[in-house]
């Protein structure tokens, strides 16, 4: 069992390394993509400087907290897209029958699939998150909490993407839904939760997991709360388990692209 896990890790490591090598074939493109993504994210600071000129706080957040939120969103999203970029194009793989080569390998299908590509601009997102972390300097414990929440955030992003993407085994056009919802998560996740009230707040905590991925973590970094901390960890585990279960349930319905031909 242990050696099987070891071998799996070895393959993962190689896959990620080769993904990076593929992207680095053109070094100029690689570097400009990363740098421009950092700039891209930084441009939103303008928006927040403007808003904080009008009020001292927005939705109960200070500028520093908004920056922490932005940083955490960027680093979680970045980490998820560096390691598991394929989750976010899973519908395409499923509908077009591109899972075949992973299914004939004696390794975990899900792990092989989701690690099989990377998104270079996501490195820029991740770096931006780290830069914000250094600028905002939330103390030693805050620093480690931020890193931990980057991981849980990435897990929640990935699991949520996997859950929606796996629905492609049953429904068409999930690519569109997955993209829009994940992008929606980021849109919500870059604004303070205090501006949302009532039903929308409920929706953002329980249906689209922005609350657990991003808002709670920022609250915990600013003001440590053990219950909330554990809730975030528990949520990440539960969502992952659900997503994995749905993926494997759907895999039985996998059509290997034969459906595509029939559809024409």
């Amino acid at each position: 069992m242990l050696t099987a896990a070891e071998n799996q890790l070895r393959v993962c490591f190689l896959t990620i390394k080769y993904n990076m090598m593929r992207e680095m074939v053109n070094k100029v493109t690689f570097l400009t993509n990363i740098c421009f993504m950092v700039l891209n994210n930084a441009s939103f600071l303008v928006q927040w400087f403007i808003l904080f000129r009008i009020r001292d706080e927005v939705g109960g957040y200070t500028l520093r907290e908004v920056m922490l939120l932005w940083g955490l969103t960027a680093s979680s999203f970045g980490l998820a897209h560096i390691l598991f970029a394929r989750v976010f194009s899973l519908p395409d793989l499923i509908v077009k029958g591109k899972l075949d080569s992973f299914l004939v390998q004696p390794k975990n299908v899900l792990v092989s699939v989701i690690t099989s590509s990377t998104d270079i601009s996501a490195i820029g997102d991740f770096l931006y998150g780290m830069v914000i972390l250094c600028i905002c300097g939330p103390g030693v414990s805050g620093f480690f909490l931020f890193l931990l929440f980057t991981v849980t955030g990435a897990i929640i992003f990935t699991a949520f993407g996997l859950l929606l993407g796996s629905l492609s085994f049953w429904f068409l056009r999930m690519d569109f839904l997955e993209n829009q919802v994940v992008m929606g998560m980021i849109s919500f996740g870059t604004y303070p939760d205090g501006i949302f009230k009532g039903a929308s707040r409920f929706l953002l905590y329980f249906v689209i997991p922005v609350g657990m991925a991003l808002w709670h973590p920022v609250h915990v970094i600013v003001n440590f709360h053990a219950g909330m901390f554990l809730a975030v960890l528990g949520y990440a585990c539960a969502l992952s388990a659900a997503a994995v279960a749905v993926f494997y349930r759907g895999l039985r319905r996998y059509g290997s692209g034969n459906l595509m031909e029939a559809r024409l």
Partner: peptide, 10 residues
């Protein structure tokens, strides 16, 4: 929707 909420707060 986000902007409605944001300006609603501001």
């Amino acid at each position: 929707y986000i902007f409605i909420k944001l300006w609603g707060y501001m």
